[in-house]
């Protein structure tokens, strides 16, 4: 086996012996000098997960988080040097751990944090202005095809995921009430803004990708008779989350 294969194997598995052929300055076995690299790898990758999932960490506590982060980084080290993307599989990993199964909403909170991070780094795109649609007549508006800006995200959850995310950071917002929540993340300037979507909003937004605005509104109304397209359209425009298709 090559030296990098052995060196690598021991970095993520403390049960592996220190590779042979490594010495201190006087030719003695390297011993715990090798552990400096073990420590650097584990600490820096755990730090990347800590930075990426602060609310998840707060929900389960620092010790528990450090433990599951250690499990994750050993099972799934990054496949890409862009650590800003690291942890895409972390929510599913959390969902797979039986020790955390009593916190059913945990994976969705992690998914929300991941979506916010991806929104932060997404391309700027060419979002339309809030009043860009003001001059259109009703028929023109209904026939309009729009697409989502690269920084816009929708997360649908059977849990009150946004309320939990907010309450974990600021208890003064009040305790979350049971029930599902759909969350829209927009990036009006540089900081992603998660906000609650009304019933039907998520259906409307996903329909916009494939059909004109009027048909998307009808699809949403079929799933939610009280749906108000103008309210969700307003959220999207204010969040600079809509683009004209390039074709």
């Amino acid at each position: 086996m090559s030296i990098q294969t052995t060196f690598h194997a021991g970095l993520l598995d403390a049960a592996q012996p220190v590779p042979e052929g490594l010495t201190d300055g006087e030719g003695r076995p390297a011993g715990r000098r090798y552990s400096v690299y073990r420590n650097n790898v584990a600490v820096s990758l755990r730090e990347a997960l800590t930075t990426g999932f602060p609310v998840t960490r707060k929900l389960i506590g620092e010790q528990n988080f450090d433990h599951v982060a250690g499990l994750y980084l050993r099972a799934h080290p990054p496949s890409d040097p862009r650590l800003m993307l690291y942890g895409a599989g972390f929510p599913n990993f959390l969902a797979s751990l039986s020790a955390l199964s009593h916190i059913g909403y945990l994976a969705d909170v992690a998914r929300l944090e991941l979506a916010i991070r991806h929104s932060y780094h997404a391309a700027d795109g060419n979002p339309i202005d809030g009043n860009a649609l003001a001059h259109l007549g009703p028929d023109q508006l209904m026939a309009l095809r729009l697409s989502l800006a690269p920084s816009a995200r929708v997360l649908r959850s059977p849990w009150p995921v946004l309320s939990i995310w907010q309450f974990t950071q600021d208890a003064s917002v009040g305790k979350p009430k049971a029930g599902s929540q759909d969350v829209l993340i927009t990036r009006p300037a540089f900081d992603p803004q998660p906000q609650l979507l009304p019933t039907g909003g998520a259906t409307f937004i996903s329909a916009l990708a494939t059909m004109p605005l009027g048909e998307a509104a009808e699809a949403a109304l079929r799933s939610a008779p009280d749906f108000d397209p103008s309210a969700t359209l307003g959220l999207l425009l204010a969040g600079r989350a809509l683009e004209m298709p390039s074709c």
Partner: peptide, 17 residues
């Protein structure tokens, strides 16, 4: 230094012979 092996990125500057 090296930092990637078998597509795993280890986020450290690892030593070379």
């Amino acid at each position: 230094a090296w930092s990637t092996h078998d597509s795993a990125f280890l986020n450290d500057l690892l030593p070379l012979p």
